[in-house]
Design a protein around this nucleic acid. Structure first.
Length: 496
RNA sequence: GGAGGGGUGGCCGAGUGGUUGAAGGCACCGGUCUUGAAAACCGGCAGGCGCGCAAGCGUCUCGAGGGUUCGAAUCCCUCCCCCUCCGCCA
């Protein structure tokens, strides 16, 4: 979330930032947010004036009573009674304008850092460095799924029977290779890079997903979990013997989305629950009925790791805080239809070692470089060629100010593919989570900066190992650093 | 699934209608003392929002929303969240 004061003071930078990102109609967005902000402040001002008058009058009532001036006390009481309704209206108005204001702000992406190359898409990304040279083969290198399937250790058919498309069953040495990679990376980051290992929950609440900005805008990319409840009832919907029904209350507002929700509930038999939306400060409370959402499967460990400091005020001395986790990640991959349908490149479930740093604003830029190096070290040790690119404004994620992608060389595909993405989010996520720190010697609290990076994606690392370490006979050598984790196995060969 | 308990400042914890935005302690910051540190002592120290160049002023916040009242952290209603015990389960 952006700082509204910053937007007020830097309208041009705001419009430029959104324009560079390819955001839809930045000018209109600016006008909308500024007018909402104006409305919000007048509403607050009027409310506070009324409250101030009420408070003053209340005090006078006490004084009048002490002075035995009953007439005056009565007159004041009447005034307070009048003010009371005005205040109630004002409070309702404030809530509503706050809600709209907050909702709009929540849908606006972060502003790119000044040194990010400007461009509409990935073609404008800049390669910073290439490490290693693309592996040369005396034969035509195969793609990872050809190798894996030939080895009999990678099974997409069975996975489809169990779970549908975009899942895989790994067996034997490949299953172990996945474990070896994850463990190697975790060991590297904890013992050499100063990260603390964390084993976080994989299922999280709405507000946690909001904090790292998966919600509200990217709901469709996420996997919700369901929980059944028995006593379903509410102003708009009722649970009857025949399922969920609309109440007959003609005053209940009803939209096409509501209708859709109801149908979906009945179709899926999904959970229906009353939800209270609120920010960490407990404001802009909004009560609404929502179907099927209970909690979310994490799309990356960035979510629980970053939210570790949500609603906290941490001591400056504890920054930078560095945490890492090796977890499964779940992505609906909505909108990725037809992309990378073969093989393990794009799955609904994959595992990843994630790096997260919480820093002061002064530390974050340097930490970003450091984190990227930590991720690169993984590939260096695995002796796999890669290159590091800085993403252009049009290719960055919603929450990022600046992002480095690390791309590994995949000989089977004859191209570099993303294996890690390291982002500095500035205070964008911290605002959403209300994660602050007490600056040394200073009175005020400040928002922390948050950074996250893959260190690295384990599934894709496995692909990279297969393709870069393949032999003419379809076997795969085990990278030197992984041998201890593979029980001394040096080569994954086809079954005799 | 059943039964109970509880949500107060960065943390712990007092407070059951009237200078309580909130005692006390810890942590933190400044100072005295000390060669330095610790200890001790003195002082400071909640957050958000609005207005203001600032000093500051106003307002809100004791999980959230609503209600009672001249007045609510304290009373009432609804909801959210957490914990404990029993049952079931990994």
């Amino acid at each position: 979330m952006l700082d509204i004061k910053w937007i007020r003071d830097h309208p041009d930078a705001f419009v430029k930032g959104l324009t560079d990102r390819g955001f839809d109609d930045p000018g209109a967005t600016l006008n909308r947010i500024l007018s909402l902000d104006e409305q919000r402040r007048t509403t607050i001002q009027q409310l506070q004036d009324a409250q101030a008058r009420r408070n003053a009058a209340s005090k006078e009532i006490g004084q009048a009573k002490q002075a035995k001036d009953e007439t005056r006390a009565e007159a004041l009481k009447e005034e307070v009674a009048r003010l009371k309704t005005a205040i109630q209206d004002g409070e309702a108005a404030e809530r509503e304008v706050n809600r709209l204001w907050h909702l709009l702000l929540a849908h606006i992406p972060n502003i790119p850092a000044a040194d990010v190359p400007v461009g509409p898409d990935a073609d404008s990304n800049k390669v910073l460095r290439e490490v290693g040279t693309p592996t040369k083969f005396s034969f035509q290198p195969k793609q990872h799924f050809e190798l894996g399937e030939a080895l009999g250790l990678m099974d997409f058919e069975t996975a489809a029977k169990l779970s549908g498309a975009r899942f895989v069953v790994l067996k034997g040495a490949l299953a172990r290779l996945e474990r070896a990679l994850g463990q190697f990376m975790l060991d590297l980051h904890t013992s050499e890079h100063g990260y603390t290992e964390v084993n976080p929950p994989l299922i999280v609440r709405d507000e946690v997903m909001f904090g790292t900005a998966q919600l509200p805008k990217f709901r469709k990319d996420q996997y919700p979990t369901l929980q059944w409840v028995a006593d379903i009832d509410g102003p708009k919907l009722k649970m009857t013997e025949h399922g969920l029904k609309r109440t007959d209350d003609p005053d209940a507002p009803w939209s096409s989305q509501d209708e859709e929700a109801l149908q979906s509930i009945q179709r899926e038999g999904a959970l229906f629950r009353e939800v209270y939306l609120q920010n960490p400060a407990g404001k802009w409370m909004d009560k609404l009925w929502r179907f099927e959402l209970y909690r979310w499967l994490i799309p990356t460990a960035e979510v629980p790791l970053t939210n570790l400091v949500r609603e906290d005020i941490v001591e400056q001395g504890s920054l930078p805080m560095r945490v890492t986790a090796w977890t499964p990640c779940f992505r609906a991959e909505a909108g990725a239809a037809g992309k990378d349908t073969r093989g393990m490149i794009r799955q609904h479930q994959f595992s990843k070692v994630e790096l997260v740093s919480i820093t002061t604003p002064e530390q974050s830029a340097e930490e970003h470089e450091r984190m990227t190096e930590c991720a690169e070290t993984v590939l260096k040790r695995l002796e796999i060629p890669y290159r590091t690119v800085v993403l252009s404004t049009g290719d960055m994620g919603f929450a990022a100010q600046k992002t480095y992608d690390i791309e590994v060389w995949l000989p089977g595909q004859g191209t570099y593919r993303e294996i890690s993405s390291c982002s500095n989010c500035g205070d964008f996520q911290a605002r959403r989570m209300s994660a602050r720190y007490k600056a040394k010697g200073a009175k005020e609290t400040r928002f922390v900066h948050t950074l996250n990076g893959s260190g690295v994606a384990v599934g894709r690392a496995l692909i990279a190992v297969l393709e870069n370490y393949q032999e003419a006979d379809g076997s795969v050598r085990v990278p030197e650093v992984l041998k201890p984790y593979m029980g001394g196995l040096t080569k994954i060969a086809p079954a005799e």
